[in-house]
């Protein structure tokens, strides 16, 4: 197909010559193709880097042990799915459970029997036995878990 190279008329302001329009169309087409191609390279890599979700590991209810396993004024760590949980037996013998994940930077907390608090060793955060943050950097209370007794057995479930 032949396209006139110069449509400008003497005396009139010259318009864009068609060749430059064609060039711009080509530029756009090339640019779009290139970025589409780039997307087709980057997309598989990004998808690859994100691991597929495994089977749901989070069991709703976990058997932690028997009542006699937990002494007064002590804390026991256990697995709650992929996360650690902590079962506290208070000085009065009450059982309470929380996710043992510090709300500051996700370190695993522990029970400090001499102070009667839940303590995070990473940045000296403290929670009381209701799981409320009482000193140090933690911004929120610990996530509480439900403790259920079936006979002598202690079960913990997500609240």
């Amino acid at each position: 197909m032949s396209v006139p190279n110069d449509r400008s008329v003497p005396g009139e302001a010259p318009t864009d010559p068609p060749s430059s329009v064609r060039r711009r169309i080509l530029d756009v087409l090339l640019g779009v193709s290139f970025f589409t191609w780039l997307g087709s390279v980057v997309y598989p890599v990004v998808r690859y880097l994100l691991p597929p979700e495994g089977p749901a590991l989070e069991q709703r209810t976990i058997r932690v042990g028997e009542v006699k396993d937990f002494k007064k004024n002590s804390g026991t760590l256990f697995r709650m799915g992929a996360k650690p949980g902590i079962l506290i037996c208070t000085p009065s013998g009450e059982l309470r459970a929380f996710l043992a994940v510090c709300t500051h930077l996700q370190c695993t907390v522990q029970y400090k029997p001499d102070e009667g608090v839940i303590w995070c060793a990473c940045h000296n955060g403290r929670y009381n036995l209701q799981g409320i943050n009482i000193s140090g950097p933690p911004p929120r209370p610990l996530t509480p878990l439900q403790v259920k007794l079936k006979g002598n057995e202690v079960y913990v479930s997500l609240a």
């Binding site: 598989p44 890599v45 998808r47 690859y48 691991p51 597929p52």
Partner: peptide
């Protein structure tokens, strides 16, 4: 078999 595009990589 499981990782997205793992076979391709």
């Amino acid at each position: 078999a499981k990782i997205h595009f793992g076979w391709l990589i």
